[in-house]
Design a protein around this nucleic acid. Structure first.
Lengths: 209, 209
DNA sequence: CATTTATCAGAACAGATTGTTCGGAAACAG
DNA sequence: CTGTTTCCGAACAATCTGTTCTGATAAATG
C-alpha cells in the first residue's frame, strides 16, 4: 500500500499502475480547483479518474496520500537551481516565482485557498530549510549566528509563502519579477543589516528609522 | 438558527442558551488542541460539551460556526490599541504579540497547526486591513501609493502571521518583545525605504522596472 | 501463441458522521 | 402559577469511508 514503487525499485512500474495513479492525481487536482480540498471525497476521485474503489485503496491509503503524491512533483520544482551568486541574498526567490508561474495550475491547487493546510506546512518547512542555509552562508565569517536567526527565517518564509498564496489565488496580479523585487525590497535591507551590523539590540521599539 | 442573539439584541440571552453555546465553544477548543480541527466531529463536541445533538444544531449550523464564534473573541483582541505613535511603523506588532501570549491557548487552537485554515485566512484579512492603513498613513504626503503596495502589505502580513503561528505551535520560544523586535528589524528598513525613497527601483541585482 | 501473474472493476459490507425530526421534560419569564 | 422557550434523548435517512469478495482483463514470460 501507500507508496511502494514495486519490487524493482526502479521506475519500471507496471503500466497499469502508472495509469491508475496518474489518473487519481489529476482527478484530485481538478476536483480541488472545483470544490476545494476539504469537499473532495474519495468517491469523487475514483469517479472522476474512472478507476475502481479497490484500485484506489490499492495505491493510496488516503485522500491525503494522493495529495502528497502530487506534492513531490512540486517539491522537485522547488529544489532547483540554488543559483547562489555569492553576494546575493535569497537568490531562490526569482526562480521560485518563475517556476510557480509555469506550474500555476498545480501551485494553485496545492498552495491556494482551496488547497489543504498540510501541504502548505510541508512547503513551508521545505522553504525554511533553504532560507536557513542561505542566512548561515551569508553570515560574515567569524560572526556567531544570532539567537534570533529562527525568528528572521520565519519572517522571510512567511513573506514568500504569503506572496505565493495570494498570487496563486488570483488576489494578486504580478509578474514573477515584480514579486521577486517586492519581496527582496522589503526583506533584504533589514536582514543584511542584521547579519552584518548588530543583531537585534532592542532599539527599544521606538523610532525605527 | 446560526447566530441570532435574540430579540433584545442585548446580552440578555437566555441563560440556557449562553450555557450551551459556551460549552460548545470551549469543548471545540479543547478538542482542537487534542486532535486537531479536522479530526474533531460534531459528535465529539456535543459529547464533550454535554449538550444534546438537537441543541447543537439549534445554535450552530456547522462545526465551523463554532469556530467563528470563538474567533470573534480573538478578533476583539486584535482590534485594540492602535497605539499609533505617529512616526512609528507597525505599532500594532508588540501589543499583538503580547495579547497573543495572554490568550495563548486560544491562539494556539485557532491559528496553530492544529487549527483550521479558514480562521487563518480570516485573521490574515483582518491584519491585512490594519497593515494597509498603516502603510498609507505612513506615506509621505503627496506621494502616490506605489503600485506594489499590495505586494508589500502581503509580505508584512505573511511575516507576522508566520511568527504568530510558529510561536503558537511551540516551534519558537521567544518573548513578545523579541518577536516584535525581530519582525520590525527585518521588515521596517525595507518598507520605510520604499515609502520614502524610490519605490522599487531594483537596487542592483534586479533591474526590475 | 499459451500460461502464469498481477492488476483491475463491480458490488456489497459494516462503521462512522452528518443533519433532521419527534415527543416529553425541564428551565425560564411574567 | 401559567405559558413559552429551550433542552434532551432517541431514532432516522443520507452520505462517506475503508474492507472484502469474485470474476474479468491486461501484462509479462517462455
Amino acid at each position: 500500500m501507500s507508496d511502494n514503487v514495486g519490487k524493482g525499485g526502479r521506475g519500471d512500474v507496471d503500466r497499469r499502475v502508472r495509469r491508475s495513479r496518474l489518473a487519481a492525481r489529476e482527478a484530485l487536482i481538478e476536483l480541488i480547483l472545483e470544490k476545494g480540498y476539504e469537499a473532495v471525497t474519495v468517491t469523487d476521485i475514483i469517479d472522476r479518474a474512472d478507476i475502481g474503489r479497490t484500485t484506489f485503496y490499492a495505491h493510496f491509503t488516503d485522500k491525503q496520500a494522493v495529495l502528497f503524491s502530487n506534492l513531490e512533483e512540486l517539491s522537485d520544482m522547488l529544489r532547483l537551481s540554488p543559483g547562489s551568486r555569492p553576494g546575493t541574498l535569497f537568490s531562490f526567490s526569482l526562480p521560485l516565482f518563475e517556476h510557480a508561474q509555469e506550474h500555476r495550475r498545480l501551485v494553485r491547487a496545492l498552495l491556494g485557498r482551496r488547497g489543504g493546510p498540510t501541504v502548505l506546512a510541508r512547503g513551508e518547512r521545505l522553504l525554511a530549510a533553504i532560507v536557513r542555509d542561505e542566512l548561515l552562508a551569508a553570515l560574515p565569517p567569524g560572526r556567531v549566528p544570532p539567537a534570533s536567526l529562527d525568528l528572521v527565517a520565519t519572517c522571510v518564509v512567511g513573506a514568500v509563502m504569503a506572496l505565493l498564496r495570494k498570487w496563486a489565488d488570483g488576489e494578486l496580479t504580478a509578474t514573477p519579477a515584480e514579486m521577486d523585487a517586492a519581496f527582496r525590497a522589503v526583506v533584504t535591507p533589514g536582514v543584511s543589516a542584521m547579519l552584518n551590523g548588530g543583531l537585534l539590540r532592542g532599539d527599544e521599539h521606538g523610532e525605527v528609522l
